[in-house]
Design a protein around this nucleic acid. Structure first.
Lengths: 220, 220
DNA sequence: AAAAAAACATACCAGTTAGTATGTTTTCAG
DNA sequence: CTGAAAACATACTAACTGGTATGTTTTTTT
């Protein structure tokens, strides 16, 4: 059984942009990546515990022998999805979007509106991948909870920095508690993702975004 | 197979307060109720799809024959949990708490603080029962999504009424959009429940509640 | 080119799953 | 008290579950 992917956690991201011929990804690494990507897709749309290894190998064409060569068991694979796929993807995008104008009121709104309305990786019917996993697995397996918490704190830290900068620049009131605000916004984001799943469309997103705008304006 | 519980959806609630000897609940109705209550408990702590019927009958002592006499299949039982147990329970409490002072800023905060910090039925590790089910089942089964949506709209309507009244009484600004605010608050509530699961304690609840207070104050 | 290790393939297994077939017991109206 | 329906009990099944044992093929090292 192999360790982790080369250059993790950024390797999968790199692979997206560097053609295989030029940057030689070994066939084994490609197999591993295929498993992780397809597993993520299935887990995102169907839940972790209700996605079977048979599902994954059927969808990928990878055999069970290959699967268990790369991963000791299902949970190790699940953790790899979180740590190697989710962790790197979109992190760069977040960072860029949160520094776009330098005013958190606009940047945070812009990021969240993008995530809800424009991002192609997230589907309203299936909610937020990280939120889903947190909900399903936090009380089931501490390793998952820890991995997800590290992921979430990335989010939080970036957003918090944006607010702190905004305070210094005078865009945000001095008495605003950045950490507190981040909890409030991210919670709302997770919650409205749940609403969207329930209603099966983006109407609730639009309503929520309007009030988010009001709330952010109130921080000025 | 029997229909639903007598006098649903309030029958289970009534049963809590009326001793069996006085208000004669048939043994069959008691069996059905036992199944629903234990099933809810297991589903709340473990998820719907990952709770097996064998789990339920093992925990209740009810046999499989009895289970399938009362419910045609697992999903019918799951829907009964939502429609007959969750629907009635706590509805009265909500209504009372939301009319306590007549000022939504205080009443809504009071209700949500109660739900997060004091309610004994909800455990931080397991999140919000309705939120959990919504997240797990909305995209899996439309019937569940619909049942949950009806449940959630109860919540919403009560809270919306509280705000509308508060506007008339001058506690809330006239330009505040009640429906929008409700979406914002309930989303935040669901989200912070998820945070709590992830972190495994109520620290995030406290932080979030502080910002909820700020947000509500901003509506005045 | 040969040996060794890595990567994969196949067949299998014991436990669990929702659900059924076929009973027996309880309840209750007449 | 009796018969029929309601309520429950037991044993079973076919499909699926994560995981293993034991191979073969491919890649890498020497």
């Amino acid at each position: 059984m192999r360790g982790a992917l080369l250059f993790t956690p950024y390797f999968p991201l790199i692979c997206k942009y560097i053609p295989i011929g030029i940057f030689p990804m070994s066939k084994a690494a490609a197999t591993r990546l295929t498993i992780l990507q397809k597993a993520f897709e299935l887990i995102y749309t169907n839940g972790y515990r209700t996605t079977s290894i048979d599902d994954i190998i059927a969808q990928t064409g990878v055999t069970k022998g290959a699967f268990y060569y790369h991963f000791a068991n299902k949970d190790e694979m699940g953790l790899a999805v979180i740590n190697e796929l989710l962790d790197s993807s979109s992190y760069a995008t977040f960072e860029a979007m949160l520094q776009k104008t330098g005013n958190p009121v606009q940047d945070i709104y812009g990021l969240i509106k993008y995530l809800l309305m424009d991002s192609e990786e997230m589907v309203v019917e299936y909610g937020c991948p990280i939120g889903n996993l947190t909900q399903e697995l936090s009380s089931f397996n501490r390793d998952f909870a820890d991995a997800l918490q590290r992921l979430a704190s990335h989010w939080q830290k970036l957003m918090e920095q944006s607010i702190v900068k905004g305070k210094k620049a005078g865009h945000i009131r001095a008495d605003v508690n950045a950490r507190q605000v981040v909890y409030f916004i991210v919670s709302g984001y997770w919650g409205i993702r749940n609403y969207g799943k329930m209603e099966g469309n983006k109407n609730s997103y639009k309503i929520w975004l309007k009030e988010l705008k009001n709330y952010l304006a109130g921080l000025q």
